[in-house]
Amino acid sequence: MIVRIMGEGQVLLADSHLAELNKLDNVLLAEMESGDGPGFRSTLHALLARVREVGTPLPDDSLEPSELILPSPDATLEEVRAMLRDDGLIPG
């Protein structure tokens, strides 16, 4: 799966990591629903750090379609809320 982190680029991510990332996504969703700004910020950074850690960066000149788009690390709670689907940022 190709994942884009807005403002950073794309990474190739094995589907085997989706369950782990979904756990962080669920925490992020709960923090957003409760209005926990500091928790939201911490979990967003943890989610993006894990994607960077387990993903393989694609070259900057690669023009692959992204299957998943994640917010930038400095995105606001409102910006991320606008990106959400029914099951959070990460499907599943």
Rank of each mutant, 00 (worst) to 15 (best):
E64C: 07
T43F: 00
H45E: 12
T43S: 04
G37C: 03
T76H: 02
A49Q: 09
L13H: 08
F40P: 07
G39D: 01
V11E: 06
L48V: 04
P71G: 03
T43N: 05
V54M: 02
I2C: 00
E67D: 11
F40Q: 02
S16T: 15
P71Y: 02
R41G: 05
L58G: 09
L21Q: 05
R4Y: 05
L84C: 10
E67M: 01
L24S: 12
N22L: 12
V54E: 01
L24F: 11
I5L: 06
A82Y: 00
E79G: 12
S42Y: 05
G37Q: 13
H45F: 05
V51L: 13
L28K: 07
V27W: 08
G39T: 01
L28R: 05
E20W: 04
A46S: 14
L21A: 04
F40M: 07
L21K: 02
L47T: 06
P65S: 06
P38N: 09
L89M: 05
E33P: 05
R52E: 07
A75C: 12
N26L: 14
P91R: 14
A46D: 12
L29Y: 13
S16V: 15
D86V: 15
M6W: 05
Q10Y: 00
T56E: 14
L89I: 04
P38S: 11
I90E: 01
P73L: 01
A82V: 03
D15F: 04
M32G: 15
E20H: 11
G37R: 14
R4C: 09
G9Y: 07
L44E: 09
R81E: 15
A75F: 11
L18S: 04
P65T: 06
G35H: 02
S16C: 15
L18D: 00
L89K: 03
T56N: 10
S34I: 08
A14N: 13
L47E: 04
Q10M: 09
I5F: 02
D15K: 11
E67W: 00
G35Q: 04
G92K: 10
M1F: 03
D86M: 14
A75Y: 10
P65A: 11
L28H: 10
M1W: 01
D74W: 04
G9Q: 03
E20F: 05
L77R: 09
S42N: 12
I5N: 07
A19M: 11
L70E: 09
P59K: 11
L13A: 04
D86G: 13
